[in-house]
Nucleic acid binder design. Structure first.
Lengths: 156, 156
DNA sequence: TACGAATAAATCGCGCGCAATCCAATCGCA
DNA sequence: TGCGATTGGATTGCGCGCGATTTATTCGTA
């Protein structure tokens, strides 16, 4: 699918070209990562987005829905049902803040905190699957983050 | 969210670490790309996956469902309804192959071919939004593709 | 103090992605 | 020739992502 392009920046052209394919590469890599994570996380009964929320909470408990959404760039229409599922599994509680009833505070249960132990093997497996060194990954991550920031800036 | 890790390869550790976050970066960049594409593609009435299928068909018409799926790493349970929507929009036709009735051949209509003209401005807009040079993007794409290949290999 | 604006979360509808399953057509081999 | 195995798609069920709307609460200000 990759095909080198020769057009100058911003001008129309006949076919698809590089700008598209960086996106396709990322899209496709994202799906590929998901397929690697799925069997690992299935042992904990988690999906990847659910795992991300748990990681965020392990890093810092007692957050609001919006606070979690800020870290993950997801909004309440995605998070509310996801959090309800995690609540249903007994990993966290959702409760309105008594000082501001608009806010829902999300807190880990002991079971949710405990799940972190089971999750300890995950990053090593993922690292293994990438087939890359930590240094390579660190550098690559930096570049992708820079790209994401540019995209977010361009989007307003 | 990024936080540097110090653990040696493959060993358990207390918190999430780099291997996870490369994935998060890609996941998040993928969503960010989608948000940039959405308004552009909305003018053509396409979603990003639909656009990808159209790009594949513009590159080479008259493909099977499986053939498209091979290029995009998607299977029939994703593609069948997507292709039906594109068919409903009048961009393509779906017909069983007369020599092998198991196979469905997907072909562009004149309208579908014509849509390519409207799509010509898209890559330039995307390139602009990335805020990167073509050379940078080309290199980055190569690294991400290598990562994806590793993941697919690790996954069997 | 009352009332409109702003804010936080929830709800709804739709389109992916994918595992699991099903079905029909074709192939392979005795 | 027949029959089990394989293959290509379709279907179903579920969990995201997100735009659009709704509801409840709080804030700002006259």
């Amino acid at each position: 699918m990759p095909e080198t392009a020769r057009q100058p920046r911003g001008e129309p052209h006949d076919g698809p070209f590089l700008g598209d394919f960086v996106c396709f590469s990322i899209y496709s890599a994202s799906l590929a990562f998901n397929r690697v994570y799925k069997p690992l996380l299935a042992e904990m009964g988690l999906t990847y987005p659910q795992y991300l929320v748990m990681v965020v909470l392990w890093e810092g408990d007692d957050r609001t829905v919006g606070g979690i959404g800020e870290v993950l760039s997801l909004d309440s229409s995605t998070l509310t049902p996801l959090l309800k599922r995690l609540e249903g599994m007994g990993h966290l509680t959702r409760a309105r803040d008594s000082h501001d009833e608009r806010v829902v505070r999300v807190r880990l249960t002991p079971a949710g905190r405990n799940l972190r132990l089971k999750a300890r093997v995950v990053p090593g497996c993922i690292l293994e699957a990438t087939g890359m060194s930590m240094d390579e990954l660190r550098r690559l991550q930096g570049e992708i983050d820079a790209l994401r920031r540019n995209l977010e800036a361009a989007n307003g």
